[in-house]
Amino acid sequence: MTAIDPVTMARDSHVPTHKTKKTDWLGLGIVAVLGLVVVVPLVVVAIWAFAEVWRYPSLLPQEFGLRFWNATLARPDVWGAMFLSIRLSVTVTLLSAIICLPAAYAFARLDFPGRNVLFLSFLASHAFPKFGLLVAIAGIFLNLGLISTFWGVVLIQLVGTLMMMIWIPVAAFQNVDRAMEEAARDAGAGPLRVFWSVSLPQAAPTIFAAVLLSFVGTFYETEGAWLIGAPEIRTMPVLMITFINNQIVVQYGAVLSVLLWIPSFIALMFTRRLVGSASFAKGFGV
């Protein structure tokens, strides 16, 4: 007989229960330490931006105010630099995507002579001290009349994004199931159509991460922008450095820092909305 008898059922209801989910103290500890290291400096900078008087050893500023904001935002060169930086970053990221994504697909899917050497060469620009490379390029640009022009800075920043926009998308394209591409061919799509309709959307979350990284990287890039762009082209970070060099008032730097956060913050929020945090994390290889 396998029928359940009510007496056994009643007895079984006194089975001891155990709490199986324990608090992960180690994990919490790591989060706390990381939080301290990452968040505290940000908070301090944010507070500085709104402080008018803040003397040691007070934990909080004695006087809050928007005096330095007014002073900073009243300057036309700040706004000019902001829009220039955004224009520059958008241009560089777009150009980089147009150049690099098809190349990344070729690296991931096609077999051609010199493939590996060429692939490694994208690392080369990051394998040498960057400043030396920049000085050499600046010499060439001087002859070409590209120094202190918008497109000169675009070109130099493009070099910085190449590695990220090749290596990350190559991994993304390699992860696309070949059978999916073949199924699209089978359904009547030519190679270009397959790339556009299947490979690109499949690799999209990862590629989006790469695009975001190159946008933010370009936005904050200082050395190249300064060396090639000066004196005509002044991006936000370059402007910040001049500010700090000219007069050591902490608040100016802090206000510009907070201003500089805005674009990357918007970009991050936008991305989270667009792809969802799970696949976004996957894009960064988490």
Binding site: A183, R185, D186, G188, V198
Partner: peptide
């Protein structure tokens, strides 16, 4: 003749549906 021009239809082991 390449697959896109062939009058054949293929079903793959991994089903290969386009998840997007």
């Amino acid at each position: 003749i390449p697959p896109e021009k062939r009058p054949t239809g293929m079903v793959f082991q991994s089903h290969a549906l386009w998840s997007h």
